[in-house]
Write a protein that binds this DNA or RNA. Structure first.
Length: 584
RNA sequence: GCACCCGUAGCUCAAUUGGAUAGAGCACUUGACUACGAAUCAAGAGGUUUCAGGUUCGAGUCCUGACGGGUGCACCA
């Protein structure tokens, strides 16, 4: 299905034949041999670096290998011509019919074109969002949620068995603060004047709902009681309530997790004790005193013995505490237990999507995974940089402290979930991103969401229109897939077809690199090819998609247009975005 | 002070994981609508890829060191 992969296989087969014929030495490593679309289209349809990569080990000049390999490749059916260029590239031009057949392949595959078995069904765990259950999601959470979600879809498309997981931090101090804040609102809901929300409590208005809901359920039974009596019950109630809010926010964004894992449940089930045992068995914990961090508040520093994990043995900068001075576990201890749990559930491949402020946490977590799994588990962390929310070029100010934050929900309501999703994927995850509420709904070329959707809508529009021009045109997939495309031999058409054929390859490399944003750039380029082709019909009526005196040609063009719209739809599907059939 | 991320056209960003002459959009200049959606397209101009070394057939990409920006730095989560 991936034409470049197939081509590479053919190249390697020829290399093996050359070994058999004694033209190159035995025992060469072919793993670096590649067949790729060249950057410069004048270099042909595909190029292989085989001669250059092998020249050293074979002790031959690249040109000599290239000449021999090129001659062999020229005998292949699909290869129209071969040229040796530059330092030893072998450029291949493929037969037009080969490309036309690919269009038919795309049509038959539809949105599943590009699906791959690269992952071989291996299990991968993608953990993302994992926002503390202390409030609704903010725009700050949106990027991680979308990057994680699209990455999960991407991996699933290229053949991995993906679990989308949310880790609920329901065991630390923050949820106690939450419980206290909720209790305050509970008293308020029962008619008490609670005045200003004191320092150290969550001020958000959304907690009023929690207070009222608790009254609805329990009446005044907690009123006037000691904190020790109501704390755990109110805490649970508030967390459950807010998790519903968060799930709802995620649903509005089109994110559906496979699994929500609770930190508290894991700790209570003894997960951390198990980790401790494991570490102790391997002599990876000890009691020690850390050096004070340099360049940061040395006055508050106080040397004290702590239970430490030897993370420096696994690449970390300092050993990390797993117990607090009061004897309770640190957050890190719970997180270790959580990752061990994931590993034991069969996820040797783990990916976490984190905010930029957690960058300093990566090494210790990776050390922990390496230590606990004896190097068999792998953890990749995708760090998402800040999103600058703007409106008409002006930065929208937010302050978490005062509770004055912009909710994710309000942004979705304003611009729509599909726009939010696409824009969040238009940058590498580790680069910061401007999100301008006005620009993202603009209908122009510099708004990629619009531009890509417009290409899809145009395709749908022309397909519809072709039927009014030729009422007996058969646009069924079967008919289109069988259409003779041999007249689609203009430069623009062939470029578009080749671009379509890059889709499977793009998916695999984006999947391998864990970089879903590449799809956004691909879709933009693909849309540009389609728009460009469209306008060529302005200069030359023969190049219009619908040629009013030539039904055969029109049918062929419709096959290409349909294939293009399918690939666009397929890409948008990975992003969780519905392609539109008309612009409004 | 240490660690991680980043540095590419005036601006916002790509660059097929080390490939050939570094590409798009915006802005600027010039052109294309009696025609399938001009919400679009074509062309021009714009670069010492922050700097200095190194690795090799070949470096924006890998290594070292500067410089500049961001983030984080014991018993928070």
């Amino acid at each position: 299905m991936n034409v470049f992969k197939d081509l590479r296989t053919k190249v390697v087969a020829q290399l093996e034949a050359m070994v058999a014929a004694g033209e190159i030495p035995n025992g060469l490593d072919f793993s670096r041999v590649a067949a790729e679309p060249p950057r410069d289209p004048s270099h042909g349809d595909a190029a292989t670096n085989a001669a250059m990569v092998l020249s050293k080990a074979a002790k031959m000049k690249p040109r000599d290998i290239a000449d021999k390999l090129g001659a062999r490749l020229e005998t292949l059916d699909v290869v129209k011509s071969v040229e040796i260029a530059g330092p030893g590239f072998i450029n291949l031009r493929l037969d037009h019919n080969f490309w036309f057949e690919q269009v038919s392949t795309i049509l038959k595959a539809g949105r599943s074109y590009g699906d791959s078995d690269m992952g071989e069904g291996e299990k991968v765990n993608v953990e993302y969002v994992s926002a503390n259950p202390t409030g609704p999601l903010t725009v700050g959470h949106a990027r991680g949620a979308i990057v994680g979600d699209a990455l999960a879809s991407l991996l699933s498309k290229v053949g991995y068995d993906v679990c989308r997981e949310y880790y609920i931090n329901d065991a630390g101090n923050q949820v106690n603060v939450l419980a206290n804040s909720a209790y305050l609102r509970y008293r308020e809901a029962l008619g008490e004047d609670i005045g200003e929300i004191p320092e150290g409590f969550y001020p958000g208005e959304y907690l009023k709902d929690v207070g009222k809901a608790l009254v609805d359920r329990d009446g005044d039974k907690w009123l006037g009681k000691e904190e020790s009596e109501w704390l755990s019950e109110v805490r649970k109630f508030a967390i459950d309530h807010l998790m519903l809010v968060i799930r709802d926010d995620l649903a509005a964004l089109g994110v559906v997790m496979s699994l929500y894992s609770s930190e508290r449940a894991l700790v209570e089930a003894g997960g951390v004790d198990e980790v401790m045992t494991l570490l102790e068995e391997n002599k990876l914990v000890y009691t020690g005193v850390l050096e004070p961090p340099k360049g940061k508040k040395p006055d508050e520093w106080e040397a004290r013995p702590q239970t430490l994990f030897r993370s420096t043995d696994f690449g970390d900068d300092v050993d990390r505490p797993i117990k607090k001075s009061d004897g309770s576990w640190t957050y890190f201890a719970g997180d270790m237990a959580y990752h061990l749990d994931k590993y034991r559930r069969g996820f040797h491949n783990m990916i976490n999507v984190w905010g930029a402020d957690h960058g300093g946490y990566i090494k210790r977590m990776q050390s922990a995974v390496t230590a606990m799994t004896e190097g068999k588990g792998s953890l990749d962390v995708k760090v998402c940089q800040l999103v600058n929310l703007m409106r008409g070029g002006e930065l929208v100010k937010m302050s978490k402290r005062s509770g004055n934050f912009i909710t994710l929900r309000s942004v979705i309501d304003e611009v729509g979930k599909d726009v939010v999703r696409f824009i969040m994927l238009t940058r590498k995850n580790d680069a910061s991103l401007d999100f301008d509420l006005e620009k993202v709904v603009e209908q122009s070329r510099d708004n990629p969401v619009f531009y890509v959707q417009y290409a899809h809508a145009r395709s749908c529009s022309v397909l519809k229109h072709s039927l009014s021009e030729f009422p007996d045109l058969d646009l069924s997939i079967d008919a289109l897939a069988k259409t003779d495309l041999s007249e689609l031999n203009s430069d623009g058409e062939l470029i578009l077809i080749r671009k379509l054929c890059e889709w499977p390859r793009l998916l695999e490399s984006a999947g391998e690199a864990h970089e879903p944003h590449r799809i956004a750039f691909y879709l933009y380029d693909l849309a540009a090819e389609l728009h460009g082709l469209w306008t060529k019909g302005k200069d030359n009526a023969r190049l219009r998609f619908i040629v009013s005196d030539d039904q055969e040609l029109t049918q062929a063009r419709m096959a290409l247009v349909k294939a293009t719209s399918m690939v666009i739809a397929s890409g948008l599907e990975v992003f969780g975005i519905e392609p539109v059939e008309e612009m409004r």
